[in-house]
């Protein structure tokens, strides 16, 4: 579904990504982890071309991201993305947040978009809040709406950029529950997160990044039981210590 081949990116002399190669198969859940500044969010944003990169190639469902002929808005519409800070549109109601891109990008009718949006709102357990505005919801609720907004586009793959790190601790669970359910339903997912519990539960593979490089790319069990690199071992011992 996603193929990342030797992707490098730099700002002037500063390398942000160097020679990253990995892949996410259809229906697979891949967790990307690593210390802050390791380039994991940047790599994720390269997948739907929110960040440009200088070298290498990324292919999503057969479409090359870095190709002049590629219609980027159409590609992005098929790649759902969930942000750390939710990024709901604060001036639009929950329903309008869910339907805006369906109507403007996919060309769905208002009625069709609304039906699809409300279906997904029910799926994340927030039907009662359809007419509210983002500012009236808790962080956890906002993030669940944001997931529904991305799903409303019927994406072939979902990208999550630290979806729980801006949340108060008591709200992390409700968001992870939605993500776990999504994974079990067979959604292809690439998730940047520090939530190793989530990784253990549903990930197929774990990609560990440090200093802009992919240091380890292994099946979940192999990664957690016997990480090969020293950096991954250190990272795991720190993050699992408490």
């Amino acid at each position: 579904m996603i193929v990342v081949e030797a992707v490098s990116k730099w700002y002037g002399d500063l390398a942000v990504l160097s020679g990253c190669t990995t892949a996410v198969a259809r229906g697979e859940v891949v967790v990307v982890c690593g210390p802050s500044g390791s380039g994991k969010s940047t790599l994720l944003k390269c997948v739907n071309a929110l960040e440009p990169f200088q070298q290498g190639q990324i292919t999503v469902d057969g479409t090359r991201v870095k190709d002049r002929a590629t219609n980027l808005p159409r590609l992005r519409a098929r790649v759902g993305m969930v942000f750390q800070h939710f990024e709901l549109f604060p001036h639009l109601s929950v329903t309008d947040n869910l339907t805006l891109a369906q109507r403007k990008v996919l060309g769905r009718s208002g009625e069709e978009a609304r039906r699809r949006g409300l279906d997904l709102l029910a799926r994340v357990g927030l039907s009662a809040h359809a007419e509210k505005f983002p500012g009236q919801l808790s962080g956890g609720q906002q993030q669940r709406v944001a997931i529904a907004r991305a799903l409303a586009m019927d994406p072939v793959v979902m990208l999550f950029d630290e979806p729980t790190s801006a949340l108060d601790p008591e709200m992390v669970g409700e968001v992870l529950d939605v993500m776990v359910e999504l994974a079990r339903d067979g959604m292809t997912m690439m998730v940047v997160t520090h939530e190793m519990g989530f990784a253990r539960k549903v990930a197929d593979r774990v990609v560990f990044m440090d200093g802009g490089e992919i240091v380890e790319d292994a099946a979940k069990d192999a990664f957690f039981s016997r990480p090969r690199s020293e950096r991954a071992q250190q990272f795991l011992s720190k993050i699992l210590a408490h």
Binding site: R76, M81, A101
Partner: peptide, 27 residues
Amino acid sequence: LPRGQALAGTALGLTVAQTYRFVLLPH
């Protein structure tokens, strides 16, 4: 506005013009 607002519009497949028209300018 937070930079993420424009990114979110773009990630949903909105064009630059649509992102300004529906997301950034009304706010």
